[in-house]
């Protein structure tokens, strides 16, 4: 890894701090990946290699762990994200319909980011607010008992306001 450019990176310092807290222990790999994921928003090859070096774990193993767990994203997400709960209760209450409507309107597939980098659509396995199903999370705001109209409207507004600002 090219240390000169990244050693100044404050985020990397946070990752290294976590590694140090765990005494470079290999079994803390998940904890360290969590920290890296939190500060960068996703895990790219550079940071995975850095962790591999620090913990003296083969890169293949670090990559294997990072890809095994759904929580970790390996690609940079868009500036806005919509997360759909695909838990059983949300599924039964028709979250799929809302998801398909968004995919169609904004031309983005689930798990992907729009070509302009503005919008990502994610699915998750249950956010645990099943009594309010279906649940959709727009950026950090949770919309309970969501409908296609409400979610579409919200995202149109967000994207529109950005366009105006620009």
């Amino acid at each position: 890894m090219t240390t000169s450019a990244t050693s100044l990176d404050k985020r990397l310092i946070l990752v290294d701090k976590t590694i140090a807290v765990h005494g470079n222990r290999r079994d803390a790999l998940l904890e360290i990946l969590h920290t890296a994921h939190n500060v960068y928003g996703f895990l790219d090859k550079k940071i995975l290699l850095h962790i591999s070096e620090k913990l003296r774990i083969p890169p293949s193993q670090v990559y294997g762990v990072a890809t095994f767990y759904n929580y970790f994203k390996l690609k940079k997400p868009g500036s806005h994200s919509v997360t759909f709960c695909l838990g059983t209760a949300c599924y039964v209450k028709g979250v799929e319909e809302i998801l398909s409507a968004l995919e169609k309107e904004f031309n983005v597939k689930r798990g992907e980011t729009s070509s302009d980098g503005k919008l990502s659509l994610f699915v998750t396995r249950c956010v645990g607010a099943c009594a309010m199903a279906p649940n959709v999370i727009v950026d950090d705001e949770m919309i309970g008992k969501a409908t296609k109209e409400v979610v579409l409207e919200r995202i149109r507004k967000i994207l529109e306001s950005e366009r105006v600002e620009a």
């Binding site: 998940l30 904890e31 990946l33 969590h34 767990y69 759904n70 929580y71 970790f72 396995r125």
Partner: peptide, 8 residues
């Protein structure tokens, strides 16, 4: 505490 990472 040990955090999982989304693996059923």
């Amino acid at each position: 505490l040990r955090l999982g990472a989304g693996a059923f």
